[in-house]
Simulated scan of single mutants.
Amino acid sequence: MQGEQGRELARVEASGGRRVFGIGVLIGLGFILIWLGLFQDGGSVLLRVLILVAGAAVIWAARAMQRATALAVILTEEGLCDSAGEVIAPIGQIASVDRGAFAFKPSNGFLLRLTVPGARRWRPGLYWRIGRRVGVGGVAHAAQAKAMADAIAIMLVERKVAEAADADS
């Protein structure tokens, strides 16, 4: 599926306002930590260095979120991929989709459970993949994520119906 995405069924993109707010909060936190590490009186040198490193790490995370949220998550007949062409989850490996209020999922998003564990991947604010779970959402448009989750659920039901029909014949 790398490079060849097929017909697009649904797309989830970052919401402009949430993207700016999320990146801005991370940049602000990073600069506050760096300022504290440089100009705050008291504390050991080791603590100040640790605060400076934490500030730099948060600034790095803001840059990673900026790059990641420029992409989109795309659902095709073959599965889920990002707009850079990286496969997130082939449709044949998706076991279930969960949008419940108590699911361990990103904000404004959904959780996929896969049948086969995949390589770890993290696109801050857009999606993550750890083992057999994929979380899509974060700073995404809630309506787009809901529509994509519903489309995946329909595809899973259609697959079960087709498997049941094949088993009967």
Rank of each mutant, 00 (worst) to 15 (best):
F39Y: 12
R63S: 09
A70W: 03
A61Y: 06
W35T: 08
F31E: 02
A142F: 11
L50Y: 06
V157R: 15
A68Y: 04
L50F: 13
R11P: 01
S15D: 15
D82C: 02
V20Y: 09
M65N: 00
G92Y: 02
V53S: 00
L80I: 12
G125I: 08
V73F: 04
D168E: 14
P90S: 06
L75V: 08
E78H: 11
G118A: 14
M155Y: 01
R132S: 13
S107T: 12
G16C: 00
I152N: 07
K146T: 12
L52P: 09
I91Y: 00
A61E: 14
L26Q: 13
I32L: 14
V25R: 05
P124W: 06
R11G: 03
A62T: 03
S107D: 11
S83Y: 05
D150K: 02
R7K: 13
Q2M: 11
R48G: 10
I59D: 01
G131C: 05
A70N: 12
A64F: 01
A162M: 09
M1R: 07
V73Q: 08
Q40N: 10
G109Y: 10
V25S: 08
F39T: 11
A62K: 03
I59H: 02
G109A: 09
P106R: 11
R7A: 14
A145H: 04
G131P: 01
I27A: 13
Q93W: 07
A14K: 02
L29E: 01
V49N: 08
K160C: 04
D150C: 02
E4V: 12
R120V: 06
S83A: 10
I88K: 09
G55Q: 00
R18L: 15
G22E: 01
A142H: 11
R11K: 13
V25N: 03
D150Q: 12
L46T: 14
T76E: 02
L38A: 13
F102P: 00
V20F: 12
D168P: 00
T115E: 12
T76G: 15
F21M: 12
F102W: 14
M155L: 15
E86M: 11
A57N: 06
R67K: 13
V157W: 11
V12Y: 07
R18P: 00
I154L: 14
L75P: 03
I74N: 04
K105G: 05
A167M: 09
K105Q: 03
I34D: 02
L38T: 10
A84K: 10
